[in-house]
């Protein structure tokens, strides 16, 4: 049985354990042995995106050591996987095992569609769902077609959601606009960040969504923060929770 090294972003480990458990369930049900390297912490993206490459470098090196030996590496986050696949070159180019690591590291939905070949999901999810396209999954990993490009449409998260019985995916006015999380951007540009988040929420509400989902919990954490402050009825769920059949 092939072994997946489970890569759980630090903030999911600490704040959203249910998302991690749902990921384990999905991978095990798809027929993979799941191992969780206990010493993992953070991929280093916050430091890298702030320009602090010296602070990010040791974390990239740790990652290669911790995850280099697995058949696959899977994370329930497009953003953290994009860090490994698209931005680790700066730190690890030429290291033994790095090219292999990049090739075997996947975002969860991408892994379920492209590697596991998941073609059916048995449970029902009778809800109106808005799919938020998290930017790094969209435009770095190309998990779906971005609205700017003139090319055939596809979407891996959408493809999986549509396997659920009873689900209704709502149509957004702006299909893939950024929610404004952006890591330290969320606090450094607090005003813009919150307005972006509110506009995304409004789009989902207008489209009639009961639940907003995404590949990245960070986007949802930001928007859930706004939703809870404003006491809105819109719920957020990570896509792994929905696909694993966790309750709303």
């Amino acid at each position: 049985m092939p072994t997946v090294g489970l890569f759980i972003p630090c903030y999911i480990d600490q704040l959203y354990p249910r998302v991690g458990l749902a990921t384990v369930d999905l991978l095990e049900r798809a027929g993979f042995r799941v191992e969780y390297p206990e010493d993992q912490t953070c991929c280093g993206q916050p430091m890298a995106n702030t320009g602090c490459t010296a602070e990010a470098r040791p974390l990239a090196e740790r990652f290669l050591t911790l995850f280099g030996g697995f058949d696959y590496v899977v994370a329930p986050s497009g953003s953290c996987v994009a860090m490994v696949r698209c931005h680790y070159d700066e730190y690890l180019a030429g290291r033994p095992g790095f090219d292999e690591l990049k090739a075997k590291t996947f975002e969860l939905c991408e892994f379920l569609v492209d590697v596991a070949g998941v073609a059916q999901i048995s449970h029902r999810f009778p809800h109106r769902v808005g799919l938020h396209q998290s930017c790094h999954g969209l435009r770095e990993l190309r998990l779906a077609q971005s609205s700017e490009l003139v090319a055939p449409a596809y979407g891996k998260a959408q493809q999986l959601l549509q396997l659920l019985d009873g689900i209704e995916l709502v149509t957004l006015a702006r299909p893939d606009e950024c929610c404004g999380f952006g890591g330290t951007f969320a606090v450094a540009e607090e005003a813009v960040s919150c307005m972006m988040g509110e506009d995304r929420i409004h789009d989902h509400e207008t489209a009639g969504a009961e639940i907003m989902t995404a590949n990245d919990m960070s986007c949802l954490m930001h928007m859930a923060g706004l939703i809870r402050r404003q006491k809105k009825s819109l719920r957020v769920m990570h896509i792994a929770e929905i696909l694993a059949g966790y309750p709303v």
């Binding site: 480990d13 606090v187 402050r229």
Partner: peptide, 24 residues
């Protein structure tokens, strides 16, 4: 806390993912 000016912090779970996975 600029995060909290317009946003709530997430609800902090009692146990982290790794603790829950180990327990499970």
């Amino acid at each position: 806390n600029p995060w909290g000016r317009q946003r709530e912090l997430p609800e902090f779970p009692r146990q982290s993912f790794r603790e829950q996975l180990a327990a499970r």
